[in-house]
Each structure stands twice: as structure tokens, then as C-alpha cells.
Design a protein around this nucleic acid. Structure first.
Lengths: 141, 141
DNA sequence: ATTTATATATTGTATGTACAAACAAAATAA
DNA sequence: TTATTTTGTTTGTACATACAATATATAAAT
């Protein structure tokens, strides 16, 4: 049972990557006062007024219940607002949310540069591609 | 603002992968009655009696505070036990923990096969390698 | 020997996230 | 039309995980 044998187990490597990637994203988004997840959520809402929660959940790769919680928080901060429409909920941006647009876009740009800076354009791309295709296969069961 | 633009952001792809990988790991570890994290923790303790919490935290890529919580839980279930030794804490396995060894090893094997089955040996390897090297770079800041 | 620094572990607190169950609205079948 | 199924959302609950602050113990410096 050598230590470090976990370094080759996808369960650990994937979680490890997720944490380091998230950490850097949080640093770059600090300027916005939002976590990256909420930042991107706002970009989506600003750019697609009336987007439904279901669509948001899919775009952000989180479950509907998680998305409900996110919208709860952003609505409490008056950064987005709900409009119930039958059984679906459409989400709209607010003035306050719109004001953040540029700041968030900039953070997003900075973040991408940071990744490129650290990993190199080359391997950033290929990493992303491999991850994407792996996720698809894994989700398909 | 096209939807799906997040599919190329490492922040999302990495988190997505982490969730799908974790889900499959949980399925394969269901037979042990433990989550994969706790399962591997027990393997480490069984295989390295007296390993310190600091070492465990490093091997498992979690913070010391998180590890404290894990050990709390496993100790409550009598699957490991602490022995305080000065300022460090050494962790030892119990009979009950030892009894689980084979089951957990088997789950781990099954898990690796499952990954191989879904991704193919080839891309499982390369994915792992790219992830590992990326994590190292990202952690280095 | 006393003070200061360093390292390890723990606790308080907070966040992200999921699953299962409940609920409500809409679509389909009878 | 009424009954049934499906779909979108929400709520209750639980877990993993982190960070910052604290406690405690050893090591180093004076």
C-alpha cells in the first residue's frame, strides 16, 4: 500500500483538479463580489432574458434544486428576478444585475487568460477537450 | 451570449467531470457501505498503521480540517482509532476496519474497470495524466 | 529558562451541491 | 371531462469541503 497510489485514481485526480480550478476562478472573480458560478449565472440571465430555470440548470451543469437555491440568493440581492409563468419560472435581469455585466465579463476574460498563462494554450485546449468527452461518456453511464 | 459557451470554460468542465466521476465511484463503492473517500482512507490506514492525519490529508488531497471531520466519523463507527502523540495524531485501524479491507479493495478494482470500460484504457490514462499535470501547475499558482 | 516561532489538529461557521419527497401545472389518455 | 402521467420547481435534509480562528505542543532563539 504505497502512498501516492491515489494519484492515479480518477476519483481523486478529478476532484483535485476541480478544487484547484475553482480556487483560481474564485480569485479572478473576487473583483465582482460574486463566486464564478453566480457570475456566469448572471451573464446567462442578462444575455437571455426570460431564460427558464431548467435551461439555466442545464447550461450550468447543476441540478434544478441547486439552481433554485442559486436564484433564491441572487433574487435576495436583487441581481435577478423571477416571473412565474405556469409551471415554469422565467428569470430576468435587474438594473443592478445589468450594472455588473462588464465587471463580470472582464473577470471571465481574466480567468481565461490566467488558465492559459498557467497551462499554456495548447494543453488548456486539450485538457478541456478530453474532459468534455470524458464527462459525456461518464454521464451516459 | 450563446448558451453552451460554458462548455469550454475549465471551471465548468472540471466541476462537471468531478461530479460524474464521483457518481460512478459512489455506485461502485455502494457495496462497501462507505463513500469512496472513506473507503480509500481506510485502505490507507490499514496499509500504513500509525499514519498521521497530516499525511492522510496530503494523500487524499483534502485540508487538515476536512480530514479531522472524516476521522471523527470513522472513529465514531469504530473503523479507525486515534492515538495522540504529542502534537500529532496517529491513526490506526481496528478489527472492524480490517474486516472491510477486502471488500474495499474489490470495490476499488471494480471502479477502475468501470472507468476503463467507459473511457477506454487509452484515454483513461491520458486523461489522468493531463489532469495530474494541470493540477500541479494550478496548485503552484 | 523564558520567550518566540512553527507545526498540527480542532472548532465555528459558511458554501455548494445533491437526492428524495412534495407540490403544482400541463399534457395526454380514458 | 375526468383521471393519469409527465414536467418544472421547491423544500427538507444531508454531506463534503473550505477558511479563519483557536488551542496545544514542540522546536528555536535569546
Amino acid at each position: 500500500m504505497n502512498e501516492g497510489f491515489l494519484a492515479n485514481c480518477l476519483f481523486f485526480t478529478a476532484n483535485r483538479l476541480s478544487r484547484s480550478v475553482t480556487k483560481i476562478a474564485e480569485e479572478q472573480f473576487a473583483a465582482t463580489g460574486l463566486s464564478p458560478m453566480y457570475g456566469y449565472l448572471i451573464l446567462l440571465v442578462n444575455g437571455t432574458p426570460g431564460i427558464t430555470q431548467k435551461e439555466l440548470a442545464e447550461a450550468l451543469y447543476v441540478t434544478p434544486s441547486t439552481l433554485t437555491r442559486f436564484i433564491d440568493k441572487l433574487e435576495a440581492k436583487r441581481l435577478v428576478e423571477r416571473k412565474v409563468h405556469g409551471k415554469t419560472v422565467q428569470v430576468y435581469s435587474t438594473d443592478k444585475g445589468m450594472e455588473l455585466e462588464d465587471t463580470i465579463r472582464q473577470a471571465s476574460k481574466n480567468l481565461q487568460s490566467r488558465y492559459r498563462e498557467i497551462l499554456g494554450e495548447e494543453s488548456k485546449q486539450s485538457l478541456n477537450g478530453e474532459i468534455k468527452s470524458a464527462s459525456e461518456k461518464l454521464e451516459k453511464k
